[in-house]
Write a protein that binds this DNA or RNA. Structure first.
Lengths: 118, 118
DNA sequence: ATGTAATATGAATATTTGTTCATATGTTCA
DNA sequence: TGAACATATGAACAAATATTCATATTACAT
């Protein structure tokens, strides 16, 4: 685990600088959990559908994505638990919408990133 | 799969609007793969260490993170394959650095998001 | 050439995660 | 109250993934 070269003066300095770039230990599980939400096609599609102030029922989402209602419900739960979407009940239906502008921005940045690839 | 309520006029309109928000089908696997990279604590820590133009050897990274060299190497491979980091060999050592400013921005946005939570 | 340090990689394993199936819950309307 | 619709949820299963261990590769020094 401990390497010889890491005892060199120059190396020690780099290490110090790098360690300064690190956030608090608890930050990383939280941050990775957050990004994991975007790491699934189905969830990204749901987020995509709900952009621009769109509010949709569960069955409409499953209709648009041609996926089972159950699969959508499970993913909506993940999004709900992470405050990515909010729900409003109207009669028998549950309407979902994005609860945070940040989310739309991050989605957009990711999209730009993969589109501008060489 | 197909729901009764989705045949209503109002519902059809919403569906049409929502479908307009969707990107091309091929986009989502690419986008989710990209975000998946950020969905792991170890990779986030590596990215974190390499911020602000920091260039580090593998052993230095494993040293900083107190993790096995092998685990770090495997994750660096993922980051390399996705053009998140670039390598430069200096003698026996491989120095890694971030290869894309975009990555640092996205990391930063995620960080701000989880920090500004209520 | 040989030994040693630095890194990479393949296989194995444990864990996480997305979807399906079956079923439960909640709402409306007759 | 009961029937039908909309949604949620638990269990089971399959697929993906992170880490470890053992070993291969590469570069340097003696």
């Amino acid at each position: 685990m401990e390497n010889k070269n890491c005892t060199h003066k120059e190396h020690k300095d780099m290490k110090k600088k790098a360690l300064g770039n690190l956030a608090a230990e608890e930050t990383y599980p939280l941050l990775s959990e957050f990004f994991k939400i975007f790491g699934d096609s189905t969830r990204l599609k749901i987020i995509s559908l709900l952009r621009h102030n769109t509010s949709l029922s569960v069955c409409c989402i499953s209709d648009c994505l041609k996926m089972e209602q159950s699969a959508i419900s499970h993913q909506l739960k993940v999004l709900r638990n992470n405050q990515i979407v909010k729900v409003e009940r109207k009669g028998k239906q549950n309407f979902y919408s994005l609860s945070d502008l940040h989310v739309e921005l991050i989605y957009q940045m990711g999209l730009e990133h993969i589109l501008e690839e060489d």
